[in-house]
Simulated assay, not measured.
Amino acid sequence: MMYSKIIGTGGYLPEKILTNHDLERMVNTSDEWIRSRTGIVQRHIAADSEMASDLALNASREAMKAGGISPAEIDLIIVATTTPDMIFPSTACILQNKLGVKGCPAFDVQAVCSGFIYALATADLYIRAGRCRTALVVGTEIYSRILDWTDRSTCVLFGDGAGAVILTRSDQPGIISSHLHADGSYSSILAAPGNFCGGKAQGNPFVVMEGNTVFKFAVKVLEEVVYEVLVENNLQISDIDWLIPHQANIRIICSTAKKLGLPMEKVVATLDGQGNTSAASIPLALDIAVRDGRIKTGQNVLLEGVGGGFTWGAVLIRW
């Protein structure tokens, strides 16, 4: 039996930090309001000169270093992003060039905040099918450029960053199962509805969100997809050593954990210092938990996310 296994993780956060107190001077909000409703204290903002591929490059190099992998060994690159460098070519192709990787497939996945889950599941299937040996999977976002900084309901939530993993062929279980879903009937609930025609932006290019609807839907499907994982793999919730959810809102994370009967001590939460980094949030949180020693060999790690579309899914990993 052929499996895929994560052998290296990496993360990158831009140098500039925007705190809640900074936002108090920009929009009608307060540090207390943001903390109590989201759990966010600060977020990182990309420099004007930085593109999504630049953030991805830094995270990828960290993951490659951790996994002991050279550019020549990578034979698949998948980038999850909602904020690509340009309409085309793909951010994955741009990243491929910056890394000095030649000839392998490289493409983007667009599933918003579930993007990394979708990308990781896709890379796993490539490896299991024998179509590649070593994959680079990246989530990278610059949400600061698609926010209306006068809209206090959205601009306080998001941040910029990138996370990456190196996935390679293994005869030992690594990724155990993946579970992907979408329901396009909710496509207007969380969106950046603008488009381009004749080289000009039309409509609203900024993030819009029906917060209460997103909250209720997220808690519902995040609970359901965990039970889907448990049933398929004949596990109990007590068998999960670490839950790493998409870092959207601490209330969503706490509500999901409570419904599952999972203590928060088993949940990796990083959004206090990063905000919602969309497709980058799960690999960033994973990298932190790996590097600080929380995640250990032999443990069951469950990644899950939900994003605009709506898309949602989960990946179960034996570390």
Rank of each mutant, 00 (worst) to 15 (best):
G115H: 01
V306E: 08
M26I: 14
K220T: 15
A164H: 06
N20R: 07
M86V: 09
G305Q: 09
R291I: 03
C93H: 07
S255V: 06
A192E: 01
R251P: 08
A269T: 15
L222G: 03
V27M: 13
V219I: 15
F206S: 10
F217R: 00
V109R: 03
R35S: 12
P245R: 05
T29N: 13
Y227N: 13
M51K: 14
A269R: 02
I317Y: 10
Y143W: 01
Q274I: 13
A269L: 08
V112A: 15
G10E: 05
L316M: 08
L55D: 01
T134H: 06
R133E: 15
G309P: 10
I252M: 14
I288H: 09
D183E: 15
G298D: 01
K259I: 06
G10Y: 10
I7G: 06
G39Y: 03
A182T: 14
N20V: 04
V214H: 04
L125F: 02
L157Y: 05
D183F: 08
I45A: 07
R294N: 06
H181V: 00
K200G: 03
R61K: 15
I45F: 03
T122I: 13
D85W: 09
A280K: 06
A80Y: 02
A111M: 09
D124Q: 07
D241E: 10
A59G: 11
E224C: 01
A59D: 04
A123H: 07
L222D: 02
F107Y: 15
G184C: 09
E210C: 00
P105H: 08
S185W: 00
F217M: 07
I175E: 06
V221W: 05
T82I: 08
E15F: 12
L99S: 00
G100C: 01
L136M: 04
Q172I: 02
I17W: 02
V226K: 04
D292R: 11
C197L: 13
G307D: 09
I244C: 01
R152D: 08
G211Q: 07
L125G: 06
L76D: 06
G198K: 00
N97C: 09
D287V: 03
G194N: 11
D292V: 10
V219G: 11
W319H: 06
K266C: 04
I282H: 11
R291Q: 15
T256F: 00
G115P: 10
I127G: 01
S281H: 10
F206C: 13
E265R: 14
A123Y: 02
L271K: 05
F206K: 14
T150E: 15
I237G: 08
A72Q: 15
R128C: 12
T83H: 03
C113M: 03
Q42K: 14
F310E: 04
I142F: 04
A66L: 04
R25M: 14
A63W: 07
K16F: 00
H179K: 01
H181A: 12
K102E: 10
K258V: 00
S178H: 14
I94W: 01
G275D: 05
F196W: 05
C197V: 13
D183A: 11
G39K: 06
M209R: 08
T81F: 04
A135R: 11
C132F: 08
D148K: 07
G130M: 11
